[in-house]
Write a protein that binds this DNA or RNA. Structure first.
Lengths: 161, 161
DNA sequence: CCAGATTGTAATGGTCTATAACAGTCCCGC
DNA sequence: GCGGGACTGTTATAGACCATTACAATCTGG
C-alpha cells in the first residue's frame, strides 16, 4: 500500500462529450435521451465556468435561486422543486448554512417547518451567479439564433410538462 | 441500533419533477440548464418503463447500442462515447460480461486492447430494448408534433456540437 | 532500440441521493 | 376537544456512479 495524497474536494467536472469520428451511433441520434444528455453536458460545462471556485453545482444553483425568489420556502418544497428527497434538501440546506448563504428561520404558521432565507451575503452571491450563468448560457447557445433558442426552451418545456 | 433490511439493488428511479404551483421560478425558466434537466428526467422516466427489470441505465443502454453497432470497439473508445473515464468503461464492461451480454476478445492488431462484442443473448436483448426505448421515447414526445420533435433533435444537436 | 504514449486494470475515495425510522407538529372528522 | 393519519425535519445507513492514481504490458515513432 503506497501513500496517497487525498484528492481535493472538487465539484464534478464533466468534460464535453466529443463525437467519435467514424463510429456508428445507430439509433442514438434519433433518441431524445442521448441528445438531451449531450446537450446537458455541454451546458454544464459553461455553467461550471460561470461558477468556478464556488463549489456550486446545478442543483445548488437552482436551490439558491428558488430560495431567493421565494423567501420562507420550506425544505420539503425545495426538495420538490429539485426533484430530490427531503433528506437531500436538508443536506443541501446544511451546506448553504455552513457557508452563511442561507439561514433557517422558524416558520410562523407551522411549528414543524423551517423557512429558508438568503443572508445578505447569499443575496449578493446569487445575484452575481444569476448574471454569470445567464451569460454563459447565452454564450453556449451562440450557435443558435435567438428564435431557435426560444423555440428550444418551448419544446423542452412541452416535453417536461 | 435497530435491525434493518438491506435495500434491494435497484436502478435509480427519478420521479418526474412536478412544477410547484404558486412558486416563483425566477430566471430558471429562461435558462437552458434547468429546462434540459426537467426534460431529461421526464425522458428517463419513460426509459425506465421501457427497460423495467433489466437494471439497464441510460449509459448502459448507450453502451450496448454502440457495442452492437461497432463490434470490436475498445473499452477506451467506449468510454469516450459515454463521456466517462477508462476505469468506468471497465466497470461497465464487467457488468455486461457478468450477465453474458458482452464478451471481450483480444484485439488482433493491438495486444493491449480488448475488442468488445455482443453475445447472441446480448444481440437479442439490445434489439428488444432499442425497439421499446424508441417506442417510449415517441410516446413521451407525443405532446410534440413530428416536426417539432425533429426540430428539437436538431437544436439539441447544435447545442451539444 | 528506447522514450513516451496508450490500454486495461485495481484500489481507493468522494459525491450525490435514496430509504427507513423517529419525534414533533398539524389537520380533520367525529 | 381529541385521536388517527399525514406531514416536517432530522439522523443513520447504504448504494450507485464516477474520478483519480498508480502500475504493468504493449505499441509507436524517431
Amino acid at each position: 500500500m503506497t501513500k496517497r495524497i487525498p484528492s481535493p474536494h472538487r465539484p464534478r467536472v464533466l468534460a464535453p462529450i466529443e463525437r467519435v469520428a467514424g463510429l456508428d451511433y445507430d439509433v442514438l441520434d434519433e433518441l431524445l435521451g442521448y441528445s438531451l444528455r449531450r446537450a446537458q453536458v455541454a451546458i454544464f460545462h459553461s455553467f461550471y465556468e460561470a461558477t468556478r471556485g464556488l463549489g456550486v453545482t446545478p442543483p445548488r444553483f437552482t436551490a439558491m435561486v428558488v430560495v431567493g425568489a421565494n423567501p420562507g420556502i420550506s425544505q420539503s418544497t425545495l426538495g420538490s422543486v429539485l426533484g430530490i428527497a427531503r433528506s437531500g434538501a436538508m443536506t443541501l440546506t446544511d451546506w448553504f448554512e455552513a457557508r452563511g448563504w442561507v439561514e433557517r428561520r422558524r416558520a410562523p404558521s407551522d411549528g414543524r417547518a423551517w423557512g429558508l432565507h438568503l443572508t445578505p451575503r447569499g443575496e449578493k452571491l446569487v445575484a452575481g451567479m444569476k448574471r454569470r450563468v445567464a451569460e454563459g448560457d447565452l454564450k453556449r447557445a451562440a450557435s443558435l439564433t435567438a428564435k431557435e433558442r426560444r423555440e428550444l426552451l418551448r419544446l423542452l418545456g412541452k416535453l417536461a410538462g
